[in-house]
């Protein structure tokens, strides 16, 4: 999913960071959002809803809809679309 080469934008920055999502270890690129890092690892489903247990992922991309909310450590409802992934980050799906 990563666009390593781009006809206009050139090659991609390849500085990496390591993070975990629901306990599994993944690699992201420095400076990218949590949502981008997970999508690059083919992860689209970030959580399941409280009432109907439906899968949800990033939708609006500007921090408005909160669909992409995740837990970072013990902090709830962090928006994956506008929060940068950093080295050692522990990301978890949150119920609801």
């Amino acid at each position: 999913m990563r666009i390593e080469q781009h006809p206009i934008l050139g090659p991609l920055n390849n500085e990496t960071v390591t993070f975990t999502f629901n306990g599994d270890v993944y690699e992201g690129r420095k400076g990218e959002s949590i949502a981008a890092a997970l999508l690059a690892n083919e992860i689209r489903t970030l959580r399941y809803t409280a009432q109907k247990n439906e899968p949800r992922g990033i939708y609006c991309g500007i921090g408005h809809c909160y669909e992409c909310r995740v837990m970072i450590g013990t902090k709830r409802s962090v928006r994956a679309c506008i929060t940068e992934v950093v080295e050692g980050m522990k990301i978890q799906s949150q119920g609801g």
Partner: peptide, 15 residues
Amino acid sequence: LAIGAAQVLNNYERV
């Protein structure tokens, strides 16, 4: 995705 979210992922995040 909202089209704007796709745009930022594609052109800014390069995913």
